Computed example of a mutant assay.
Amino acid sequence: MKSKILLPILFLLAVLISPSLMAQNDEYYRPDSLRKDQPERKEVPPVERRPQDQKPVLAEKKKLDDFKNKKFIDRVRLGGSFGVSLGTLTNINVSPMAGYELTESLVGGVGATVMYFKSKWAGVDAVYYGGRAFLMYSIIPELHAIGEVEALNVEADTYKKYDARKWITSPMLGLGYSQPIGGRFIKALHLQALYNFNYDNQVDDYGNNVNPNGLFLGQPIVIRLTFL
């Protein structure tokens, strides 16, 4: 009797369970449609930054930090220029200068000038004096641009007085070649060529130019050899 009752119950359970098993099998073998809809993610390998790629940036930062940490005395430059010309035209020029490194590439400074000038041709025998302010910008270590304003007290003949004195102002701009020499205060030797934009106006009452600095005396080009 018990076996007759048990067999129908087992058959009923088998009928109820079989649809769910078939559904699970269908789901197991069904293609993954969701994966097709989503784009496949590609793994991007990390880019390794080589030390040589970072070197220029790090070197520039270190150079800037070193400059900012410089003491005041280490930014100071001392030097000047001098020249001697003897003969029909005598020109003895001493011009001390002092500069300060405003940035890695820019130096600002001042200078003084004392000059003994004698010309048999022009009939001049006098001492000139004055000062200057300048900015010197390093384009590359060997080449720099320089801007300068010089005020010089010179002799100038007037209709009222012979050998009168007057101040002349020379705004100048030029380029220079630098040769490092590695001194503490004198960093380099500079060969400079500057153009005097006010040269044509530096004349006495008779139209004679009174600026003694022009190249070959009578030209607006000024050539200097400067230590700074």
Rank of each mutant, 00 (worst) to 15 (best):
M22I: 01
V47T: 10
S20C: 07
L89R: 13
L10D: 08
I9L: 10
D53T: 12
A156T: 04
F117N: 00
Q179T: 13
E101Y: 04
D74I: 14
V124T: 06
K161M: 09
I140G: 06
G174H: 04
R30I: 00
I140N: 13
V15F: 10
N211I: 01
S3R: 01
A98C: 01
N196K: 03
T90C: 01
E43Y: 10
G130M: 08
E43Q: 10
Y100M: 00
A122S: 06
L225I: 12
K161Y: 05
L173W: 07
K63I: 10
R224C: 07
F134S: 01
S33H: 12
L21N: 07
L152K: 02
Q179H: 14
F216L: 13
K63L: 12
L89V: 13
P45W: 06
T113Y: 00
P171T: 11
P96D: 05
L215A: 07
P180S: 12
P46G: 15
Q54H: 09
P56E: 01
R132S: 03
N209Q: 13
G176N: 00
S85G: 12
F197V: 08
W167A: 14
V154L: 04
G80D: 10
L34D: 07
A59S: 15
E43P: 01
L173P: 05
G207Y: 03
G218P: 06
F82T: 10
G214M: 09
Y128L: 05
L189W: 09
L135N: 00
D204M: 10
E142A: 14
V107P: 04
G182A: 15
G111R: 09
P31L: 09
A14Q: 01
L6D: 02
A126T: 03
Y162C: 07
S105V: 07
R50T: 12
T103M: 02
N69S: 11
I140V: 15
K160Q: 05
K120P: 07
G207N: 09
P31G: 05
P212K: 05
L58W: 14
G99M: 10
V210I: 15
Y129S: 15
L34V: 11
F185K: 08
G123T: 13
L175A: 14
I5C: 11
F185E: 03
D163T: 07
L21S: 05
F11I: 12
A156M: 10
L34P: 01
G87L: 14
Q54I: 10
F82Y: 15
L34K: 11
F72S: 06
F117I: 10
M97Q: 12
M136T: 11
R30K: 11
N198T: 12
K55H: 05
L228Y: 06
V110F: 10
G79R: 05
F72K: 04
M22R: 12
P171V: 08
L89G: 02
Y195G: 04
N198Y: 08
G87N: 08
F11E: 02
N213V: 00
G123P: 04
P96W: 05
M1H: 02
V107D: 00
M115V: 13
P171S: 06
D157H: 08
E150K: 04
